[in-house]
Simulated assay, not measured.
Amino acid sequence: MATSLKIDEELKGRIQHLADLRHRSAHWIMCEAIKEYVVREEARESFKQEAVRAWESYKANGRHLTLEEADAWLAQLEAGKDAELPECHE
């Protein structure tokens, strides 16, 4: 799929400078930048959708962990312990 992209001269110069430093083509630099952007934005959207699902689940059943419960569990994981996720409750 051929796609054209219009960018201003200042950005075009920056891309070319980076391409020269990396011994790559400007096309390669732009493709890499687009790939990284898409991966990052897909991950951000996935995180957002997971949060929406969690909120909907909480509204439907009221099950949750308190901040203290979650914090204690995370502290155990951070300390390298193999801690089980606490049971959610109402």
Rank of each mutant, 00 (worst) to 15 (best):
L65H: 03
H17P: 11
E36W: 01
L18C: 06
K81G: 13
R40C: 03
A60E: 13
C88R: 10
S46V: 12
A60N: 04
A33S: 08
Y37N: 03
E50Y: 03
E45S: 14
A75R: 07
H27A: 01
E36I: 08
A54L: 04
G62C: 00
K48C: 05
W55K: 11
H23P: 02
A26T: 15
E32N: 11
R14Q: 13
E56W: 02
A26V: 12
E10R: 05
R40Q: 12
E87F: 06
G80V: 12
A19C: 08
K12I: 04
D20K: 04
I7E: 02
K59M: 07
E32C: 11
V38G: 05
I15G: 04
L85R: 12
K59G: 14
H89M: 09
A60R: 06
A19L: 01
R22W: 12
S46E: 11
A2M: 08
A60V: 00
L11W: 03
E10H: 02
A75T: 04
T3Q: 05
L65F: 06
E32G: 03
Y37I: 07
E87S: 15
M30T: 15
R44I: 13
E69M: 03
R44K: 14
A51W: 14
V52Q: 11
L74K: 08
E9Q: 09
L21V: 12
R40I: 05
E56P: 04
L18H: 10
L85M: 15
I15V: 15
A51Q: 15
V38E: 02
E84Y: 07
N61Q: 03
Q76K: 14
L18S: 11
E87R: 09
D8N: 06
L18T: 10
E9W: 07
A70L: 15
E69P: 01
E84H: 07
D20T: 10
E9K: 07
K59Y: 09
E45F: 05
A83I: 04
E90P: 05
Q49K: 04
R14I: 15
H89N: 11
E78Y: 12
K6F: 10
K35T: 08
A70H: 15
A2C: 03
K59S: 08
E56V: 13
A26C: 00
A83Q: 11
H64S: 13
E87P: 06
S57F: 00
R40H: 06
E42Q: 06
Q76I: 04
E10M: 11
S46N: 10
